[in-house]
Amino acid sequence: MKIFGAMYDKTMEWSKHRFAAFWLSFVSFIEAIFFPIPPDVMLIPMSMSAPKRALRLALYTALASTLGGMIGYAIGYYAFDLVQIYILKLGYQAHWQQAIEWFKAWGVLVVFVAGFSPIPYKVFTIAAGVMQMAFLPFVLTAFISRAARFLLVAKLAAWGGERFAAKLRKSIEYIGWGVVVLAVVAYFILR
């Protein structure tokens, strides 16, 4: 069954849309608060299809993610009791505990690590508010971390460019089904 090729083609088509940068920024913003899909899913194809815009797109992504992180911080600081149930329902309890332990041990440095961590970024933004971390160091560290990550991702994708996009398209079915298999295996192992 070939479904990933069509999804790949559609994603590459959307990455060239005139409002793609807006949607990339929007996804980056909401991902730092509640959205489960990281902006890399949009940044990579956009950077491959427009390598000259990759660094600008990474900057948009970092700025929007930092602004979203500020909202996540405010939620943790002012309204954690209202959203705590959702952390449990969404299955972030283990990630939450890990983030809190890291904040206790390393303070603001955790925000820098969070920009590269596989733990969802929203967990760290809300945890920073709950831990009442100093706001300005949080914002500065969040921006530096997110900018470093997204600049790296965008630059690597732009470096590959259209050539890499074409090679990736040839293997996308194998990659897609491989990810599905790994996700199922991880689900059963981590349960």
Rank of each mutant, 00 (worst) to 15 (best):
F143S: 15
T66F: 10
L152Y: 04
F35T: 12
D40C: 13
T61W: 00
A158S: 01
S117H: 06
F143D: 03
A142W: 07
R56V: 11
Y77R: 14
P39N: 12
W159H: 05
K155L: 13
K89R: 13
V111H: 06
A79D: 05
P45W: 00
A114E: 08
A74I: 00
L109N: 03
S65E: 01
T141A: 14
I44S: 01
M42Q: 00
L109A: 14
K104P: 01
T141Q: 10
F124Q: 04
A54N: 14
G160L: 13
M42R: 07
Y86L: 11
I33Q: 04
M70P: 09
A74S: 15
Q93C: 03
L67D: 04
A79H: 07
A158E: 07
Y60Q: 03
Y73H: 02
F103T: 04
M70S: 12
L156V: 15
A74K: 08
I126Y: 08
F112H: 02
F112K: 06
S49G: 12
Q97T: 15
I37M: 14
D40K: 10
Q93H: 15
P45T: 01
L63Q: 00
Q132K: 14
R56M: 11
M42L: 15
A99W: 05
Q84N: 02
I44P: 05
V123I: 10
L82S: 11
I119E: 02
G91V: 06
Y78Q: 10
I126P: 04
A99H: 08
F103S: 05
G69N: 01
I87M: 02
A114P: 04
A99I: 04
F135L: 15
A128H: 06
I126V: 14
L140P: 06
T61P: 04
F124H: 09
G68D: 09
Q93D: 13
S47A: 15
A94L: 13
I100W: 03
Q97K: 12
I44N: 01
Q132P: 08
L82I: 14
A54Y: 01
A142Y: 02
S117E: 14
A127N: 07
F103R: 05
W96A: 01
I87F: 10
T141F: 14
Q93Y: 10
T141M: 15
W159A: 04
A147H: 07
E101I: 14
Q93G: 12
L136G: 10
I75F: 12
Y77M: 14
V139P: 02
P51N: 05
A128D: 04
L156F: 15
G161R: 02
F112I: 09
G68M: 03
I71D: 02
G161P: 08
F124Y: 15
F34G: 09
P118D: 08
R56F: 11
P45Q: 00
M42N: 01
T141W: 14
L63A: 10
E101G: 06
A158G: 10
A105C: 03
P120G: 09
K155V: 01
A158D: 06
M46G: 07
W106D: 07
Q97Y: 05
A127H: 03
M42I: 13
P51S: 11
L55W: 01
I144L: 12
I87K: 06
S145K: 08
A128E: 03
L140M: 11
L67S: 02
L109E: 07
T66L: 13
A127Y: 07
M46K: 09
G115M: 06
R149C: 12
A158C: 09
F35L: 10
G107H: 04
A142R: 08
F103A: 02
I75E: 02
G72A: 11
